[in-house]
């Protein structure tokens, strides 16, 4: 048997990984809530944010400018994708827009492969957060402590934005009924743009933390965290933000514990998808999903 501090360490890194999934999962769940679209390009936006950082820092721009710059560029990328690839399809069959999202995902992945030669690039070290620290006798990096705190703060800010502001009210209205809210004078386009701004922003924050933690970026790296964040969003009930966050923490912690056991570690990724099927069978709307009533 290992001692307590070993499990504490596992729990800590599980919570960190869960926070990273949570930041990505919010982007999925918000877009789904509003457009009923599974945004398959979201994981790749996350990957692109990683490459923005690498290229901006290597061009000699200091860290305190490059971090905001990465956030801005990622947000611009998210909004441009929405305008170019999703907006023209708003009245098309719902599946066409999903295919368009898959097309964007191919485009970004292959563009990154072409641009970088497909090799893993080292992520620049951000001072301070990569320093070592000892908490409760567990030695770790500052980033493992910062990530959950930052995530919780961002989620609280987001919930306040959605509950208390005008644009948040618009978002809630649009996710309830797209057409009626349009008739009520809600500017659909700005609500949708705002959704993509928030989603991409959180993905960019997640990307900075994730790659500082794992230290390298490859063109296809967005796929796995993207899928897991998506599973987290479904687990918590797609469309629900607290649900997505809780789902992400559950997946992050479970995954870390499975990975630590050498007999089962190879199945840690398969576990996520098995969990997806189990939750869909037992509770089809997820933990906090709204029950959809069928209109006749």
């Amino acid at each position: 048997m290992q001692n307590l501090s070993y499990y504490l360490q596992l729990l800590l890194s599980g919570v960190t990984v869960g926070s990273l999934y949570a930041l990505i999962a919010i982007g999925y769940t918000m877009v789904y809530g509003i457009l009923r679209l599974i945004n398959f390009a979201h994981g790749d936006i996350f990957m692109m944010a990683g490459f923005f950082m690498i290229y901006i820092v290597s061009s000699g721009i200091p860290m305190y400018i490059s971090i905001p710059l990465v956030l801005i560029l990622t947000v611009v990328l998210g909004v441009v994708i929405e305008r170019v690839a999703y907006k023209p399809l708003r009245n098309a069959p719902r599946m066409s827009i999903m295919i368009s999202a898959i097309g964007v995902s191919y485009l970004l992945q292959n563009f990154a492969t072409y641009f970088t030669g497909g090799l893993a690039k080292p992520y620049p070290t951000i001072p301070f957060i990569s320093n070592g620290i000892t908490v409760f006798g567990v030695s770790t990096k500052v980033i493992t402590i910062i990530t959950p705190i930052l995530t919780i703060l961002l989620v609280i800010a987001l919930v306040i934005l959605i509950k208390r502001t005008k644009i948040g009210m618009g978002m809630r209205a649009v996710s309830k009924d797209f057409e009626t809210s349009q008739l009520m004078g809600i500017k659909i386009n700005s609500v949708i743009s705002m959704t993509f701004i928030i989603g991409s922003f959180l993905a960019a924050v997640g990307s900075i933390l994730y790659f500082s933690y794992y230290e390298q970026v490859t063109p296809t790296i967005g796929a796995m965290p993207g899928l897991k964040a998506f599973v987290a969003a479904v687990f918590g009930g797609i469309g629900s933000i607290p649900g997505a966050v809780i789902g992400a923490y559950i997946i992050g912690v479970c995954e870390t514990f499975i990975k630590s056991n050498s007999d089962y570690s190879i199945f840690s990724n398969a576990f996520t998808f098995a969990l997806l099927i189990i939750i869909l069978v037992l509770k089809p709307n997820g933990l906090f999903g709204e029950k959809l009533s069928e209109k006749v």
């Binding site: 170019v84 023209p88 399809l89 066409s96 295919i99 964007v104 485009l107 992945q109 563009f111």
Partner: peptide
């Protein structure tokens, strides 16, 4: 190829 998929859909 990715761009073509998006274009065809639009």
């Amino acid at each position: 190829y990715g761009a073509a998929v998006v274009f065809i859909m639009i």
